Amino acid sequence: MPTVLTMFGLRVVIYPNDHRPAHVHVQGKGYEAVFHLNCPDGPPQLRENYGFSQRELGKIAAALVKNLALLCAQWRGIHGYF
């Protein structure tokens, strides 16, 4: 499972055998959240949350917005489509 970005001690992961639509798994501190990227223009949208607080989710979402172009390029590099 490729880690495509790290932020705040969390890993942003894209699974190579995953499905559309383009999304990332954010993992760390024993928690996980899944965000649809809505490539190429965003914004990322929370799909699932397992443990992160609303404050943490806001911080994560803001970081994903800042890195959207990179994350969409990584998804396309792994899967070849959005």
Rank of each mutant, 00 (worst) to 15 (best):
H19V: 10
K29P: 14
W75T: 05
D41W: 13
M1K: 03
I78V: 01
Y31P: 07
P21C: 01
P2I: 15
P43G: 05
I78A: 00
G42I: 06
H19N: 09
R20H: 10
Q74K: 09
F35P: 00
R76C: 15
V12Q: 07
A33N: 03
H79C: 01
R55P: 02
F52R: 03
P16E: 07
P21M: 06
V13T: 02
K59N: 13
H36L: 07
W75L: 08
A63T: 00
L71N: 00
C39E: 10
I78W: 01
G77E: 09
R11V: 13
I78Q: 00
V26D: 03
R76W: 12
P40D: 04
C39A: 14
P16L: 10
Q45V: 15
G9E: 06
A73W: 06
Y81M: 15
A62V: 12
N17E: 09
A73M: 09
E56V: 09
A22Y: 00
H19W: 08
N49Q: 11
H23N: 07
G42C: 10
P16D: 10
M1Q: 11
H36W: 03
P16C: 09
G77M: 15
P44Q: 03
F82H: 14
Q45M: 15
G28A: 11
G30M: 04
G9K: 07
G28I: 05
T6M: 13
F8Q: 12
V4D: 00
L5A: 09
F8H: 15
T6D: 14
A63C: 08
P16G: 07
V65D: 09
L68W: 01
E56Y: 06
A33K: 02
H25Q: 13
L70T: 12
V26H: 04
L71K: 02
Y15R: 08
H25V: 08
L70D: 11
L37N: 08
V65C: 09
P40E: 11
A61I: 06
Q45K: 13
P40Q: 02
R47M: 14
G77N: 09
R11G: 13
Y50H: 13
G9N: 02
H23T: 02
I14N: 08
F82R: 14
A73N: 03
D41C: 15
H19P: 15
I78R: 00
N49K: 03
L5C: 06
L71Q: 01
L37R: 08
R11Q: 05
N49W: 15
Y15G: 12
I14M: 10
G42P: 09
L10H: 14
K29L: 12
E56M: 15
M7A: 15
